[in-house]
Simulated assay, not measured.
Amino acid sequence: MIEERPQGRGRPRSEQSRRAILAATRELIAESGFEQLTVQAIAARAGSGRQTVYRWWASKELIVAELVTSGELTLPAVPIPDTGRLEGDLTTWLDTIVLSLDDPQAGVLMLALVTAASDNEKDARLLYEMSTGPYHAALVERLAQGAAAGQVGPRADVTAIADALIGTVLFRALTPGACPAPTSAVIRTLLG
């Protein structure tokens, strides 16, 4: 993730310190949530200095991203229901995700991951492969089933609809003060 320092410059990085920092971060998130998480608290819990933390990661968001991409911190999975009624299934799915964003821990964690993804291209790719990508693929598949059953407009592009649904989730996560359209209206418009 972070490039190693050339030999002979500064102190070498300790894998033991790195693992302790990751463990401390995971524990602190579990105890008091992401909002309360600070690099100073991580360093203290790990028994290292803040400089050591910053040698490995530029921000607490990047530490969280590494925990997610390594599978040590998981995001809640929200499967897309399949009752045979596409509009209702997608509305239920989107409402569940929107409701989860009301949980301060989940909302702030999502913001941390978006921040990490915007800061590091490698993290962005890994986070896509681990979270957004599987959701997008599942949406495209479910939309294709709905299209085959005549539940999607004849000229609709199922990939574009999936993109818009993922964008709807991100819009809601990134703009908590906004007054977005009801999820049912979004779904109805997209399936048009």
Rank of each mutant, 00 (worst) to 15 (best):
A23W: 00
A137W: 00
A148I: 05
D157L: 12
P81W: 08
D82Y: 07
D95I: 14
R26K: 14
Q16F: 07
A148M: 02
R155P: 03
R125N: 13
E3I: 15
I21R: 01
H136I: 01
A181N: 11
S118Q: 08
D82S: 14
V114S: 05
Y54Q: 05
E35R: 11
L139H: 01
L174Q: 10
I42C: 04
L99C: 11
Y128N: 00
A44D: 12
T69Q: 03
D123K: 06
R9V: 15
E61N: 12
Q7S: 09
E61H: 13
P79L: 05
A162V: 01
V108M: 05
S184W: 06
K60M: 08
S32L: 05
R13K: 02
Q16G: 05
V140I: 13
E27L: 10
A106K: 01
L126E: 15
A24I: 00
P12L: 04
A148K: 06
A138F: 02
G10R: 04
T183S: 13
E66G: 05
L73W: 01
L139N: 02
T168R: 06
T83I: 11
I80P: 08
R18H: 09
Q16V: 10
A65Q: 08
T92H: 01
Q36H: 08
A24Y: 02
L75G: 00
A147W: 06
V114A: 08
P12K: 00
L109G: 08
G10N: 03
E87L: 09
R172A: 04
Q7K: 09
G150R: 00
S14H: 03
A160W: 03
D102Q: 10
A137S: 10
F34G: 09
E61I: 15
T168D: 09
Q151E: 12
R55W: 04
P154L: 13
L170T: 04
L111R: 11
D82I: 12
A30K: 04
V152D: 12
A156T: 10
L94N: 00
R45M: 07
Y54N: 08
T183H: 09
A20C: 14
A178F: 12
R50G: 15
L190T: 13
G10E: 01
E121H: 11
I161T: 05
E35F: 14
Q145A: 15
A173H: 01
T69N: 06
T38S: 15
E15T: 15
V98C: 10
L67V: 10
